[in-house]
Design a protein around this nucleic acid. Structure first.
Lengths: 208, 208
DNA sequence: GCTCGTCAAGAGCACTGCTCTCTTTTCTGT
DNA sequence: ACAGAAAAGAGAGCAGTGCTCTTGACGAGC
């Protein structure tokens, strides 16, 4: 039952986006009274949470599947394209995960574990490669605890590389979001190629 | 009149976000009938467009004001912090400008000129500095037209640097969005410092 | 056989964007 | 100064939303 609701909700989400998702419309499509759906998902946020968890798991699957034993740069590029392909195929789900949060929605704790899956794929790449960034500089002392926290995702990586690695990670999502959210307008025509070139240059930035 | 409506709408936007913005609530606060507001903004999208244009101009103002004749790296850092400060001060407006687009809304053409203001500030920095990136590689031939289009924002910059410059630009917004949209959770405590360190490393990546 | 908990339905509340009609106000041209 | 036109606002109404509360069906356990 929950499965059927989330499946229908996902198709509505894919079509209309998170804000256009309507519990009543889902109920209608199931031939159910609008009130009955609240038995399974008491509030719309609960349904959104389920979709968010599914979404993180879907992109986590894609991220993990992209890692087929290449060299670090190949794995990094594969991960980048996995994220971008997911975003292009399921834009509304990507927006739900990495875009502006829907107002009033507070992500519960059980979303963070699925969200970490994709991050951990990245962490493993960096951790395995132990890159030496050509432009890295040691982080200031205040950042000690934060560097330590970040290193738990990429064990064994030196202080100098942990922070550029974070920057590259956010840069990936910045590039995807910029493209997906229409910031490029129509200035860029070969989007995949320019994305690929940008991610390759980030690999060199990291020293992969 | 239009001014008063947008002012009130902006306070509502700051409080409730774009999706929570209600024409009726704005009308109520003005002591007006809900229908009367449609005379000034026929549709909610029109009001959003006005807010978006104002928002782009506000961040454009901040970006331009940050450029006080330092060296290129200083100007780049000042621009980064101007963007980040704007995002932290007016998160819902930032989300409206650079976050996931509100569903069904199609940005009209008159938003792109204000949007370009901030981009042009960046373009001038790169154009003035003509950096030589230590990790740059010439873009593939297919990207010729795109590189040309990008160069119109940063005249005189070499092919090798145009694409990393785009990557750094999207990386800036990726870092701000990650922080603002809660992707860091509570792993990062010194957010300003880690942002600053990341943007400095991007400056070296660009060869500024 | 009879309770009792689960599931679904229906009605209803308060809210939304938007349209239509009707009235009032304001401005303009003579 | 005054009549007419144009603009501005009010009100009712439609279709839709999330969510709550109450009522009815149905099957399992005592």
């Amino acid at each position: 039952m929950v499965r059927e609701i989330t499946d229908i909700a996902r198709t509505h989400l894919a079509r209309d986006g998170a804000a256009g998702l309507s519990l009543r419309a889902v109920a209608r499509e199931m031939g159910m009274a609008s009130s009955a759906i609240h038995r399974y998902f008491p509030t719309k946020d609960d349904l959104l949470t389920a979709l968010i968890i599914d979404g993180y798991n879907a992109i986590g699957d894609a991220a993990e599947a992209s890692q087929q034993g290449q060299d670090p740069t190949g794995r990094w590029l594969a991960l980048c394209h996995a994220v971008r392909d997911f975003a292009l195929e399921r834009p509304h789900e990507y927006a739900l995960l990495y875009g502006s949060p829907v107002p009033g929605y507070q992500a519960p704790a059980d979303t963070i574990a699925p969200a970490m899956r994709t991050t951990l794929v990245y962490g493993r790449i960096i951790s395995d490669a132990r890159p030496v960034s050509p432009v890295a500089v040691p982080p200031p002392a205040v950042l000690g605890p934060d560097v330590e926290a970040l290193r738990s995702v990429m064990p064994g990586v030196s202080d100098e590389v942990v922070t550029p690695a974070l920057t590259a990670w956010t840069a990936l999502f910045g590039a995807v979001s910029f493209e997906l959210f229409g910031q490029f307008g129509d200035t860029i025509t070969h989007r995949r190629e320019i994305f690929d070139h940008g991610m390759r240059s980030l690999a060199r930035y990291l020293g992969l």
